[in-house]
Amino acid sequence: MPTTDLKSKLDAIFDKHVQAELAGDLDGTLSTMAPNPHIVNIPTMLGGQGPQSIRTFYSKHLIGQFFPPDVTFETISRTYSEERLVDELIISFTHTIKMDHMLPGIEPTGRRVEVIFIVIVGVENDKVAYEHILWDQASVLVQLGLLNPEGLPVVGADAVAKIRNPALPDPFFNGS
């Protein structure tokens, strides 16, 4: 089991990185990263490999459009090892801005979104070496009114409700 010191160290490294992203500080964000970082937003395949590609990704597709001002982050769990941390969290926001990293080509809809994210963060020499970011894009698209869930095995914000309350009924099997 990781020590409290290791947890505090990894928390500080990642929190500094996220705060720079949220502040729209390109150079501050890049200063929190290892010399040859990579990022993959898995549902959209957007991100970058290497310092120049990461700089381009952040400057053109993330800084200034990371999340709208009303974003909230609700941590469900955080798991640690010597070289990485894994976050399970709920991110809630109103889609009021362009968000290329998450919704490329989709204009703001003004709709509310709650979605579960899994963020795997690699750490190398006290810097963020990589981020592998996963979320249920179908759930997001249902909430934005861009995907009709009828007849499909997808849900909208009900996925978040089920994480908050696992006793909720299953939407497809009715307890059987």
Rank of each mutant, 00 (worst) to 15 (best):
P2I: 04
K7D: 08
S8L: 10
D11C: 09
A12F: 10
K16M: 04
V18K: 05
Q19W: 13
A20T: 02
A20Y: 04
E21I: 04
G24E: 01
L26S: 00
D27I: 00
G28L: 03
G28V: 00
L30P: 01
S31G: 15
M33G: 06
P35R: 06
N36M: 03
N36K: 11
P37R: 00
H38K: 04
H38V: 07
N41Q: 14
I42G: 03
P43Q: 06
M45F: 12
L46I: 15
G47S: 02
G47A: 05
P51V: 12
P51C: 09
Q52R: 15
I54A: 05
T56W: 10
Y58Q: 09
S59L: 05
S59V: 07
S59M: 10
S59A: 13
H61F: 07
H61N: 13
L62C: 05
L62W: 04
G64L: 04
P69L: 12
T72C: 09
F73T: 08
E74Q: 14
I76G: 03
I76V: 15
S81D: 13
S81M: 07
E82C: 06
E82Y: 15
E83P: 02
E83H: 10
R84I: 04
L85S: 12
V86R: 02
I90F: 10
I90K: 10
I91K: 11
F93E: 04
K98V: 15
M99C: 06
H101L: 02
L103T: 01
P104L: 05
I106C: 02
P108L: 14
P108E: 08
G110E: 08
R111K: 13
R111I: 03
V113G: 05
V115F: 00
I118Y: 00
I120Q: 04
G122F: 14
V123K: 01
V123G: 01
N125E: 14
N125R: 13
D126V: 10
D126M: 07
E131I: 11
L134K: 03
D136K: 06
Q137D: 11
A138G: 12
V140Y: 01
V140G: 00
Q143Y: 10
L146T: 07
N148A: 06
N148D: 15
P149H: 01
E150H: 10
E150W: 07
E150I: 13
G151V: 02
L152K: 13
V154G: 05
V155K: 03
D158W: 06
D158P: 00
A159R: 00
A159P: 01
A161R: 06
A161H: 09
K162N: 05
K162G: 00
R164A: 14
N165Y: 09
N165A: 07
N165D: 15
L168S: 04
N174I: 08
G175N: 11
